[in-house]
Amino acid sequence: MKSLIDICDLSREEIDSLLDTANDIIAHPEVYSEKCRGKKLATLFFEPSTRTRLSFEAAMYELGGNVLGFSEAQSSSASKGESVADTARVVSCYADIIAMRHPKEGAPLVASMHASVPIINAGDGGHNHPTQTLADLLTIKREKGGFDGLTLGFCGDLKFGRTVHSLIAAMSRYKDIRVVLISPQELKLPSYVKRDILQKNGIPYTQTTDFESVIDSLDILYMTRVQRERFFSEEEYLRLKDSYILTPEKLRRAKSDLCVMHPLPRVNEISTAIDNDPRACYFKQVLYGKYMRMALILMLLGVN
């Protein structure tokens, strides 16, 4: 039985297969509408994340399955002190597959060690969020036609931005990728990510604090939010939160087929004036996330 805890748990072939399935779901949704009839997804959300939870629930409903679960720790047995291991064992008796979000890093991994059904990591603190990466990959695949030869720009909080680390890891498997890292000094990509992923895979990268000097070179611009919850000090958060804001003026110098992505929610780092620009792909990214979660549920349940 397989679980998905980290995007690196999936081989490139498995990711390609998930992308093919998602594309097929988009083309022929009716074929998939009863695939999970009689199956139950448990959404165990120990911290609130409305969008991710709704995406999983919509995915399961569109496959004809059912959903049960909770959306905050207060309404679960964790508030009585139950361990993650015990919760995983108990919920395995009720559901065929579990999507778990937890503020503690590594909690879904611990759950997968004790559950008797597949576990999907729906986000564990600042650590992993593999289904966001799957959504990102489908967005790139559909908007750019493939992955090879792309120049990807990552902008904003590259230090705590787990979606950035995971997407860089996933993209490192493809050919002729170039990476441009745009962030304030304090939020630079951690050196271990540069060493263990970029340098190890021979991926050329540049680092800059000057957004406007590189925007014309990008095929993908991945914007991120400076997340309040990743800072221990409110003062530090306030100092850095407005570091980079994408505006129509800045976008004027970008390629006409640039794909602007964002894992959402945004605060103010992308001006709403860009929302109707054809290069804005962040709402499509949300939709693609649902299709990738459908494909993932099918794969983990072994449904053809």
Partner: peptide, 11 residues
């Protein structure tokens, strides 16, 4: 401090 090993019993 955000690691599950800081709170999970007997891990």
């Amino acid at each position: 401090p955000r690691c599950i090993s800081t709170t999970e019993q007997e891990l």
